[in-house]
Design a protein around this nucleic acid. Structure first.
Lengths: 150, 150
DNA sequence: CAATTACATTTGTATATACAAATATTGTAA
DNA sequence: TTACAATATTTGTATATACAAATGTAATTG
């Protein structure tokens, strides 16, 4: 993808700005592709992400602040995100017995089951997007990305 | 920024998935930083982007589909985005005389004036985010990003 | 132990976004 | 020239997100 072509500009873009725009374009593309892949499951990327985190807990319940810390894109409202997953029967929420301010969130077996199927299409999509890259290039890209100031 | 640390995982992430997550984290960081920079102007990144496109038109009016084509993140509703800018007095909208299905959108002098001030903080933010990079590295990063399938 | 502070989550409000349907206008073809 | 298709935008609806305020619970301190 050529940046100038994509945003239809004839003017030359300074290298720094071009880099920022480039990253944003690629990230939007990734989002779009993943959203399409997950569409048949009627689930958003964020919801998928939460399910994956919960699975990674290996049965150990997570609370909202844990989820927030581990999410790729920080949500300002994890409560409502979890609400949606409960409605779908993919997670359960209980008040934490040791600290009733907290909630314990677990993935259900139904959630685990669906997640397994989502994994397939997501992995396939990820591989498709990156099949132009050699392993060395992927490593190089990760190293460069590390230099961004967070 | 270390990916594993940021998403608090102890498990090893496959290189492809790690790359995708890395890009998303960096893009979210960019978004956040730009949003903060633009906050004093009470304007969203998308709105800022539209103003920049309109300025690039050099007086030539743009219609909605032109804006859509040139925007970094495709909006599904440019109408309402332009509505907001009109409310702020930054743009004007008129029905296109040659084709009354279209609208002609122009940036106002007030919009141009504000945009000039926004440019400063945005450029500063962009430079801050990238000051770890040499010119060679930026070029290298752009080349790698080009390999993403769009 | 009452008051205060800190913590964890929920709720309210405004705006953003995705998608589909509706509206208005223009072009075209029988 | 009427009917139909194509184009360009707007509107409706549902969900997502950002931010601030509210709620409920726990810990601390005088």
């Amino acid at each position: 993808m050529n940046v100038e072509e994509r945003i239809k500009t004839s003017e030359e873009i300074p290298l720094e700005r071009r880099t920022i725009i480039h990253i944003m374009l690629v990230a939007n593309g990734i989002n779009e592709k993943l959203a399409i892949a997950l569409k048949p499951f009627d689930i958003s990327i964020q919801q998928f992400n939460v399910l994956r985190i919960l699975r990674g807990q290996n049965g150990k319940p997570a609370n909202l602040s844990t989820l927030n810390k581990r999410m790729v894109s920080k949500m300002s409202n994890t409560t409502r995100l979890v609400d949606k997953l409960i409605l779908k029967g993919y997670v359960e929420r209980h008040t934490c017995p040791s600290n009733r301010r907290k909630v314990e969130i677990n993935i259900t077996s139904k959630g685990l089951d669906r997640l397994l199927k989502m994994d397939d299409v997501v992995s396939k999509t990820e591989t498709e997007m990156l099949d132009q890259f050699s392993e060395h290039e992927l490593k190089q890209l990760n190293l460069l990305l590390n230099q961004f100031k967070s």
